[in-house]
Amino acid sequence: MLKTTRREALVTIAAGISAPALHSQGTYEPTTFSMEEYESLGTLVDMILPASDTPGAREVGVHAMLDEDLAKSDEALGILRDGLGRLREQGFADMTAAQRVEALTRYSESTGADRDFFETLKGLTIDAYYSTEVGLVQELGYQGNTYLAEFPGCTHEHELGEAD
């Protein structure tokens, strides 16, 4: 069973995205994915958007968000499950970090089902990560959806540069 680290739980709570069904012991139990799938998913979303000067996708609970969001999805869930299954057969869990990057790169450059898996994983990770306070505000500097007395608009001098 995957243990949510104390740090992960704290970051998650601070970001206002307390993971779904978070138990008092700090354990998250996926309901859509199996525990093994869920663990690989956590690794994968973090490979798509890793920690930098801001937390990565795993730390903000993107894999938990996908577990929650995909409960009622058929197509995306099927694509992820199939892809996770193929990665499992390739021994993903035991790969080194470099081997994992190599495997995901191969998926991203392939066609067909592997490519679908990569695109789906990437799209879902991006949508989820940049909907969190960490992703949207801390990482991108989003300041919107607030009350302004006036809308200042552009206050800079922007030049196009020379015409071709």
């Binding site: 798509i48 990057v101 695109e119 991006i126 940049y130 909907s131 991108l140 989003y142 919107g144």
Partner: peptide, 27 residues
């Protein structure tokens, strides 16, 4: 301009730190 999501990033190439950097730069 700056929106309430970064869906454009789905169509940027690659993944990882480089992708994350590109998203922030282009946002």
């Amino acid at each position: 301009g700056c929106g309430s999501n970064a869906q454009f990033a789905e169509r940027l190439p690659g993944f990882g730190l480089e992708l994350k950097k590109e998203v922030r730069k282009r946002y």
